[in-house]
C-alpha cells in the first residue's frame, strides 16, 4: 500500500548520495556553482533565485542576451549570453515560464571569457533571464522571447 511512498523515500536518499558523491569527486565544480540538483526541479523563478542566493539581483547593462525576439520552434531556441562584468564567476540561464525555470548554470573559471552560447527549450512565450555572479555579487538581464510553437510537450 505504501510502496510508492517507500520508493520515493528511497529515491530521495539515492539522490542525496549522488549529490554527496558529486561533491567528493568534483569539489571545485560544486564550489564554483553551488547548485544542488533540487534547484532544477523548482517550479518558480523566485525559488530558484533564493536557492542560488540571489534574492534581488541588480539589473546590469554589462550583460547581453543575444536571442531571437520571436522563435518559431520552442524546442530549439538559440541563446547567447555575454557578461562584460569583471570577475564573472558563473552564468545561470533561466526561462521564467518553463515548468522548471532553471535551464543551465555555467561555471566560468579565470581565463575563460564570460560568453556562452547554447540552445534551449521553451514551453511558451517567456522572459529569459541571465543571472551572472561577478566578484561575489549577482547581476541579471532579461529578454522576452516569443514562441509560436512550444517545445516542452515535444
Amino acid at each position: 500500500m505504501n510502496h510508492s511512498r517507500r520508493k520515493a523515500i528511497k529515491t530521495g536518499g539515492g539522490v542525496l548520495a549522488m549529490l554527496f558523491a558529486a561533491g567528493v569527486i568534483g569539489p571545485e565544480v560544486v564550489l564554483a556553482q553551488n547548485l544542488g540538483e533540487s534547484a532544477f526541479s523548482m517550479k518558480t523563478l523566485a525559488e530558484v533565485m533564493r536557492a542560488v542566493g540571489a534574492q534581488s539581483p541588480a539589473t546590469s547593462d554589462a550583460i547581453v542576451i543575444k536571442a531571437p525576439s520571436i522563435a518559431e520552434n520552442g524546442a530549439v531556441v538559440p541563446v547567447s549570453i555575454e557578461s562584460k562584468l569583471p570577475g564573472t564567476e558563473s552564468i545561470t540561464l533561466l526561462v521564467e515560464k518553463n515548468p522548471t525555470p532553471l535551464v543551465a548554470s555555467f561555471g566560468i573559471p579565470a581565463g575563460t571569457e564570460g560568453n556562452i552560447s547554447t540552445r534551449v527549450k521553451m514551453g511558451q512565450t517567456s522572459d529569459v533571464y541571465a543571472l551572472v555572479k561577478a566578484d561575489g555579487k549577482f547581476y541579471m538581464a532579461k529578454q522576452e522571447i516569443k514562441i509560436t510553437l512550444g517545445g516542452c510537450g515535444g
Binding site: 568534483g26 571545485e28 565544480v29 564554483a32 556553482q33 547548485l35 532544477f40 524546442a75 530549439v76 531556441v77 538559440p78 547567447s80 526561462v95 518553463n98 522548471t100 532553471l102 535551464v103 543551465a104 548554470s105 555555467f106 561555471g107 566560468i108 573559471p109 581565463g111 575563460t112 571569457e113 560568453n115 556562452i116 552560447s117 547554447t118 540552445r119 534551449v120 527549450k121 521553451m122 517545445g151 516542452c152
Partner: peptide
C-alpha cells in the same frame, strides 16, 4: 588538466545540445 568550463544542465537544454565558449591561453 585545468577546467576551462563547467556546467550544470537541466532537461530544458535542447536535444543534441550545442555549446560554445571561449577561453584564453
Amino acid at each position: 588538466g585545468k577546467t576551462v568550463l563547467s556546467a550544470q544542465w537541466g532537461p530544458a537544454i535542447s536535444k543534441n545540445p550545442y555549446l560554445e565558449f571561449n577561453f584564453k591561453g
